[in-house]
Design a protein around this nucleic acid. Structure first.
Length: 117
RNA sequence: CCAGCUGGCCGGAUGACCGCCGCCGCGAGGCCCGAAAGGGCGCGGGGGAGGAAAGUCCGGGCUCCAUGGAAACACGGUGCCGGGUAACGCCCGGCGGGGGCAACCCCAGGGACAGUGCCACAGAAAAGAUACCGCGACCGGGGCUUGCCCCGCCGCAAGGGUGAAAUGGUGCGGCAAGAGCGCACCGCGCUUCCGGCAACGGCGGCGGCAGGGCAAACCCCACCGGGAGCAAGACCGAAUAGGGACGGCGCGGGCCUUCGGGCCCAGGGAUGUUUCCAGCCCAGCCGUCCGGGUAGGUCGCGUGAAGCGCCCGGCGACGGGCGUUCCAGAUGAAUGGUCAUCCAGUGGCGGGCAACCGCCAUGGACAGAACCCGGCUUACAGGCCGGCUGGCGCC
């Protein structure tokens, strides 16, 4: 899956809908085209030093590889943001965090789109 | 055995499945792209974080900028001696000073007669000294209890007291009291000789003592240093906007109109400047080409002051020779995820006098390459190997 690399893509995704779970926050933005889905990862300095940030990003990448590839909708950009517990949280819990976040964004109980005014 | 000092090293191991980033090879076969070369997919092989990758504090390589060369000045840095090194503010070996019974550890360690300055508080006095309390014979005056007190003159700096520091220390002599005034030892300065490449050390001699501290205050002396950095720099290079050249078409605004036209008004530029006149060009659209540059891409980018092994020289830092290896190269940034077993460590239970054994649980320090080397500094769970010192015990 193609990676997001441009800052403006991340900014755009941040304005779209999101779902926050203990281990991570997932953002999903419908680009409005039918291209292949893309994914990006964020680990801020708030999380800790370089070792912590790298490990969090790697775990998120693994999550995306195993669970997002099949479920991603075309024309969408996904951004996984690491949160404090993501460094030490059990991998199985992190997986659950992701799948339920994805479910909430794909099948909202009521529309949560907050942008595109 | 106990206590301590010190040098070097390691920085969890093995395996399974699923992945990531480079590299090499294979394939006239297969699939996709391409005119081709080739690329992607595929198959096989091999590599993929550190001792600090960190802080970015020094020294270099490399790159660009500036510069005819050199020197001086300014500014910054370094500062015992000798050696090592590409170089260093680093390292090694010494010297001196301080601490420790010792092994060993620590030191910003040139110059204070070149000059300027500072030394709070306290204290009489803080740098050509000073005399607060004090010590003292002669002389002069006074008092009286007639050998003492007070005052003056004069001599002095031992003792007291202040301070971080008071113009050498201790002892004896000397004296009215004292003072290097004299002597001995210690310290200090100069010096013959000896040892050492040197810093410096040693024996002796001379000098009665000259030298307060601060140079991490300015300063003086010696030596070193151009600036900026891989976001350096080189090359390729869209879309869009803008620039230039050429060609074609066209020629501003307002009002009126019978759509033929009429009337009124006007901008900018260049030839040194200003004013006036005349002429020229521009102002819009389209096309082609050119150059700069942005996004993006490629290179820079790892054969090197390289690693490993052996031998030789050196107390050592290190140097030399021979052999051998090719060993990360990302750029929203690879080097991972999960699991199992084991090895240290920790806790609990049980057995045993104890060393220890068994079971269960727990559990992995500091920290992530970003152009590359040499250092320094800082962080760090736990462990391994060696050397030395002191004490106790035994032979």
């Amino acid at each position: 899956m193609e990676r997001l690399k441009r800052r403006q893509d991340f900014v755009a995704a941040a304005r779209a809908s999101y779902a926050a779970m203990p281990g991570l926050t997932l953002q999903a933005r419908n680009r409005g085209d039918e291209g292949s889905p893309r994914v990006g990862f964020t680990a801020t300095k708030k999380l800790g030093n370089a070792v912590v940030r790298n490990r969090v990003k790697r775990r998120l990448r693994e999550i995306a590889r195993q669970h997002l590839a099949a479920a991603a909708l075309p024309g969408h950009d996904y951004v996984l943001i690491g949160r404090q517990p993501a460094f030490a949280r059990a991998y199985a819990d992190l997986e659950k965090d992701f799948t339920s976040a994805l479910k909430r964004l794909h099948h909202p109980r009521r529309p949560v789109e907050k942008d595109q005014s």
